[in-house]
Each structure stands twice: as C-alpha cells, then as structure tokens.
Amino acid sequence: MTIHGLWVISKAGGLVFSRSYSDVLPPQPVNTILTLAGILHGIHAITAKLTPTPIPGVTAGGLESFEAEGWGGKVFLTPTGTKFVVLHSLPQSGLDDLMKRIYEIYSDAVMKNPFHTPEMPINSALFETKLQTLMSGVNA
C-alpha cells in the first residue's frame, strides 16, 4: 500500500491541510484540492442522511471510503467534525491503524500547539515532520 496524499478538512468544510506523499497521482493546484475537499465534505454530509436502514439512536457516520481505478480514499471523521482523508493505492491494508496514528499526531502537534487557531490552516512544522516520518514508514 502506498499513501498518495493526506487532506485535513475542518468541520466547516474548509481544507486546512493537504500534502502529497507520492508522485503517482498527478499533482493538483491548491484551488482544485480546495474544491475537491469542499465537494467531499458535501458528499459526506449527504451520505450521512442517505443511510437506507438507520439504526434508531445511532447517528449515521456518512461516507467512509471510495474507490477509483487503482486508487482509493479513506475518510475518518473525528468526534469534533474534523475529517482526515487519505488517498491510497489499492489494495489497502492497515488503514484504520494509520488513521488513528494520524489522529494522534494531529492531537499532539496541532491541538496542543498554542499558535494554532482552530478551523484555520495548519501551519506547524512539527505536524509535518511527524507525518513525514509516519508516511515514509508506510510507503517504504
């Protein structure tokens, strides 16, 4: 499995972080990624309402993953509404663990950083370094 990229989408649907970790997928301009992230946010909200057999008392989570030819995406929603989207190669394995690791790094390097403003673009060297280490471990 190769990780192609990571997006972090704020609860309002804005892209706050995006990095590419391989050159398999063609690089996109930032504006395109912003738009795509916005669309994904919308689709996620719609899918959450479309659950065919809703379980009473349980809130439907919405889109969890999508697949295209040769690559796919995994969506992880935190309880506070932040979404992590990982673009990966197929077949994939161990994505759930990876998602938890990313969430952990996010909690440590972003949420505990006094210079970060919630819902604003992530600008933390520590976050990037830690992610880079994690991703090069996975992609190796």
Binding site: D108, A109, K112, N113, P114, F115, L126, F127
Partner: peptide, 14 residues
C-alpha cells in the same frame, strides 16, 4: 514538545 513556534516568532522560546 508539542509546541511548534511559527516562523515569524522564531526567537521565542517557550
């Protein structure tokens, strides 16, 4: 250890 000082405040040491 979790603090990442932004570039425009690089002189700051927490």
């Amino acid at each position: 250890q979790f603090i990442s000082v932004p570039k425009d405040m690089s002189d700051l040491s927490c």
